[in-house]
Simulated scan of single mutants.
Amino acid sequence: MLGLNRSRAVPYEIVAIGTSAGGVKALVTVLGALPADFPVPLVIVQHLDPHHDTVLAEILDRRSPLRVKLAEPGEVAAGGVAYLAPPDRHLLVAPGGKLVLSKGDKVRFVRPSADLLFESVAEVYGPTALFCVLTGTGFDGSKGAKAAMSHGGTVVAEDPSTAEFKGMPQAVANAVAVDLMLPLKDIAGALVALTDGTRSL
């Protein structure tokens, strides 16, 4: 689905991704197809077991040209790096691209929360932010997508009909008029084209 034919006055500065069940495979597909010189940072919420450390960042780092790492509090998000929320911590972005980790209350039973990440990115980056929701169960990301749209951001969703788990992308599609709805295999190409300005909405 294509959203409004919007002309862009400003380039994108960040990509925020939310995913849950089936997300590891989806992230391998998306991050693995992005170039090492991807011009903006990516901040990612993947729902993880809160009681165990994760090696997901290392797995994704080996399978992507990008640098992929667990987010650390206080670091400033840089282009060409994907920052993954650690288990049992909300990931937020503050002004200047500063990363914040929080042990605040769970949102819709999850921590980290894509909703909180999206809301913080929308507040800081407004129309220069890209938001992407991939496979997952539940509704996480739908409230954040509303915040994204209200601040002029662009929302991309995996096509629920092709997603391994359609709950999250379908909830986002029900909540807002997404700008792009694409099969998983086409999402990385769209992110590249949008951030380098060769694709407009």
Score class of each variant (00 low, 15 high):
residue 2 L to T: 12
residue 3 G to R: 08
residue 5 N to G: 12
residue 5 N to K: 14
residue 7 S to I: 12
residue 7 S to L: 12
residue 10 V to R: 09
residue 11 P to Y: 00
residue 13 E to K: 15
residue 13 E to V: 00
residue 13 E to A: 15
residue 13 E to D: 14
residue 22 G to V: 06
residue 24 V to M: 14
residue 25 K to F: 13
residue 26 A to T: 12
residue 28 V to Q: 12
residue 28 V to M: 13
residue 29 T to K: 15
residue 29 T to R: 14
residue 32 G to C: 13
residue 33 A to G: 08
residue 39 P to Y: 12
residue 39 P to K: 10
residue 41 P to S: 06
residue 41 P to C: 09
residue 42 L to I: 15
residue 43 V to D: 09
residue 43 V to N: 02
residue 44 I to W: 07
residue 44 I to E: 08
residue 47 H to E: 09
residue 47 H to R: 14
residue 51 H to Y: 15
residue 51 H to E: 15
residue 56 L to S: 05
residue 58 E to M: 12
residue 59 I to A: 09
residue 62 R to P: 01
residue 64 S to N: 11
residue 64 S to P: 13
residue 64 S to D: 11
residue 66 L to K: 08
residue 67 R to S: 15
residue 68 V to F: 09
residue 68 V to K: 09
residue 72 E to P: 01
residue 74 G to C: 08
residue 81 V to K: 06
residue 84 L to M: 10
residue 85 A to S: 11
residue 85 A to L: 02
residue 89 R to H: 15
residue 91 L to M: 10
residue 94 A to T: 08
residue 97 G to F: 06
residue 98 K to N: 06
residue 101 L to V: 07
residue 101 L to K: 09
residue 103 K to Y: 05
residue 104 G to C: 01
residue 105 D to W: 00
residue 106 K to W: 04
residue 108 R to F: 08
residue 108 R to K: 11
residue 108 R to C: 07
residue 109 F to T: 14
residue 112 P to D: 06
residue 114 A to S: 07
residue 115 D to C: 04
residue 118 F to Y: 14
residue 122 A to F: 04
residue 125 Y to E: 02
residue 133 V to S: 11
residue 134 L to T: 05
residue 134 L to Y: 01
residue 136 G to N: 09
residue 139 F to H: 13
residue 139 F to Q: 14
residue 140 D to A: 09
residue 141 G to A: 10
residue 143 K to T: 11
residue 143 K to A: 14
residue 143 K to D: 00
residue 144 G to H: 07
residue 144 G to S: 06
residue 145 A to N: 00
residue 145 A to R: 04
residue 148 A to V: 03
residue 148 A to F: 07
residue 153 G to C: 03
residue 154 T to K: 06
residue 154 T to S: 03
residue 157 A to Q: 04
residue 158 E to G: 05
residue 159 D to C: 06
residue 160 P to H: 11
residue 162 T to C: 13
residue 163 A to N: 01
residue 164 E to H: 12
residue 165 F to Q: 11
residue 166 K to S: 15
residue 168 M to H: 08
residue 170 Q to W: 02
residue 170 Q to H: 03
residue 171 A to Q: 10
residue 173 A to P: 01
residue 173 A to Y: 05
residue 174 N to T: 05
residue 177 A to I: 11
residue 180 L to E: 11
residue 184 L to I: 02
residue 186 D to F: 00
residue 188 A to K: 02
residue 189 G to Q: 08
residue 191 L to C: 01
residue 191 L to F: 01
residue 191 L to R: 03
residue 193 A to D: 14
residue 193 A to V: 07
residue 194 L to I: 12
residue 194 L to N: 04
residue 198 T to V: 06
residue 198 T to Q: 05
residue 199 R to N: 00
residue 200 S to V: 14
